[in-house]
Design a protein around this nucleic acid. Structure first.
Lengths: 146, 146
DNA sequence: TTGGGTGCAAACAGTTTGCATTTTC
DNA sequence: GAAAATGCAAACTGTTTGCACCCAA
């Protein structure tokens, strides 16, 4: 399961010429094992033997390589998520914090037209959708994730 | 011009029962005079006589009242913007940092359908478009705003 | 007069960086 | 052996908070 993800991360990182070190492998392993969104701090807590800076540096590397994405929350916080796929959006549960990937981006065309009309050289766009997932509605859970 | 904005901010703040104090008026005035996006730090710098905490508290108040919006940048930063109007999106120039409001939100319908399909109780959505404005393309300016 | 608002400083969260040391290629 | 990566601690950015004091309603 997650070893597939780990393989994907590892191979893409090495492909680009980055070295395979023990701490880096540890971070990749931990990240690939996360089932949902995570914070660098959580990864660091799971890997006491790895320096905090290395955790941040590695996550940043994954971010730059497009293997992880940063998901902004409604209230200003941020969470990270493995994303081996390309451009996509998210459905964020404001109660339990679960984040679901939205594969198809139906707004691209609209965004392109808009940018063209405004004479902007388009660089990218970000779309996040916030709501409460089915389970949280049933359990009447309070809003947690800021 | 901006006095209209100031009036709008002031009246809405007082309408809700918040007191009119000198520091608060100072912040409202400064915020209403910003032509583009701003940071609390910039407002604080313009108002040395007002405590930093009050600046943050007042901007937060405006945020809660929906009179100012927080605009996330591509790289993780944030800027603030006066927004007397309701729900809308932004066109952000990644070079000069200019932010243009996009009045019409054409994605609402699509977002609603998506949430429905995923059985999410929709709470809101966020859409930001990043690119380079016409002037920055001409001047071949480098990317600045993170 | 009283509760909301303020200022200050300290605390805080999240993240980056300088630098000497270690490791991989 | 050279370049890359690490670990630590310190620095930094952006923001919130505790608390004594102040002032608008």
């Amino acid at each position: 399961m997650s070893s597939t993800i780990l393989d994907a991360l590892s191979s893409r990182v090495e492909e680009r010429g980055f070295r395979s070190t023990a701490p880096r492998r540890d971070v990749l392993t931990a990240v690939s094992q996360q089932r949902g969104p995570f914070s660098p701090e959580e990864i660091a807590a799971q890997l006491p033997m790895v320096g905090r800076a290395t955790v941040y540096r590695t996550i940043r590397l994954l971010l730059d390589l497009g293997l992880v994405c940063r998901v902004p929350l409604e209230g200003g916080g941020v969470r990270y998520l493995v994303s081996v796929q390309g451009h996509h959006h998210h459905l964020v549960c404001i109660s339990c914090g679960q984040i679901r990937d939205l594969g198809d981006c139906a707004v691209t065309e609209w965004v392109e037209k808009l940018a063209q009309r405004a004479r902007y050289q388009l660089h990218g766009h970000m779309l996040e959708i916030y709501g409460r997932c089915e389970r949280c509605q049933e359990r009447a859970r309070p809003v947690r994730a800021r």
